[in-house]
């Protein structure tokens, strides 16, 4: 059950927070047990008895007051010290001028990911090499969003006009699930994240594959689809490398068929689902910024044939 949780850390940063959480958790549990015991004991032990005369009237006790005030202050002070220590481990400040390894731009309701060194561009599914601390720059194209992959560490807001930085690292290969955590409008629920951590070599292969420019199909349904893609204004919102489509209102589609999910985790990426999505995106993500084109089945089939060539 504990996957994708602050209690299943998979990076040094997340680990530091987990330790702090366990420590503070024990402290507050102890306080809770103390308070609950005292309350319940009082209620049972000092319950009104029928013979009851009024009990002795006690107005206070300064020594007791000082004891618990100081006790509370000390507890808080200890917690503060641990918090500050964890802060540096969980969120080290980047050196001034340090270049990010990854730039993430949050859009209503998908994530754009750019790799400045290799110039790879992708969406929603972010590949990283295992074991390397990467500096991420986080921006927003519209409203405030929030990056959260619990296994890998802290949340961070994506705020227009206020780029933020944080570290991302995964100790083990695997797929880490996350989501947008700041309410950002109609499809906030479907702005999910997949971080795919791979060993260095596999990561490099992935990067190479993402850099390839897919050939423009010349015959068959795919070719018809490619033409439709141009004619139907898809090009106004999407990018496909090597074609006139160079916009970023929607995700880069150059390698869309190589992804695991569609529309930020809403659908599994299969040819069938691709057809469903483009025939009626509003049925799957009402309010999303991709219109319904009222395509006929033949057009859908041709477009899917084309999109499936974008591996």
């Amino acid at each position: 059950m504990l996957n994708n949780s602050p209690f299943s850390p998979a990076s040094p940063e997340a680990q530091a927070i987990t330790h702090l959480f366990i420590f503070v958790g024990i402290v507050i549990l102890a306080i809770f047990v103390l308070v609950a015991t005292l309350v319940l004991y009082a209620v049972i032990r000092f319950r009104h008895r029928p013979d009851g005369a009024e009990p002795r009237q006690v107005f206070g006790n300064s020594r007791l007051e000082k004891t618990w005030t100081i006790g509370a202050l000390l507890t808080v002070a200890v917690i503060c010290i641990f918090a500050i220590r964890t802060m540096h481990e969980a969120d080290a400040s980047p050196r001034p001028g340090e270049k990010p390894n990854l730039v993430i731009v949050a859009h209503q309701w998908w994530w754009e990911a750019r790799y400045p060194e290799s110039s790879v561009v992708t969406a929603d599914e972010i590949h990283i090499p295992v074991g390397k601390p990467w500096l991420v720059e986080l921006k927003s194209a519209d409203v405030i969003h929030d990056w959260w992959v619990p296994d890998l560490g802290r949340k961070m807001d994506a705020i227009p006009g206020h780029p933020n930085h944080f570290w991302i690292q995964a100790d083990k290969p695997g797929t880490y699930l996350g989501t947008c955590a700041e309410y950002c409008g109609a499809q906030h629920a479907w702005m999910r994240i997949r971080v795919i951590a791979e060993p260095e070599a596999e990561f490099k292969t992935w990067e190479q594959q993402q850099l390839e420019v897919p050939p423009i199909p010349v015959s068959g349904e795919a070719a018809a689809g490619s033409k439709l893609f141009n004619d139907l204004t898809c090009v106004n919102c999407h990018t496909v490398a090597g074609t006139p489509a160079q916009a970023d209102i929607g995700p880069d589609l150059t390698h869309v068929a190589s992804r695991e999910t569609l529309a930020a985790g809403r659908l599994k990426d299969t040819p069938e689902n691709l057809g469903k999505w483009i025939s009626n995106p509003q049925a799957y993500k009402p309010g999303a910024h991709m219109p319904d084109f009222n395509l006929n089945p033949a057009q859908v089939q041709e477009l899917v044939a084309y999109l499936e060539t974008l591996k």
Binding site: P6, I17, F21, I28, I31, A83, R154
Partner: peptide, 19 residues
């Protein structure tokens, strides 16, 4: 109040806020 303390410990808040 006690869960509030965990939220005031900001590294924990970085994980659990907005959930």
């Amino acid at each position: 109040g006690l869960s509030g303390v965990t939220l005031a410990v900001f590294p924990i808040d970085w994980q659990v806020t907005d959930t």
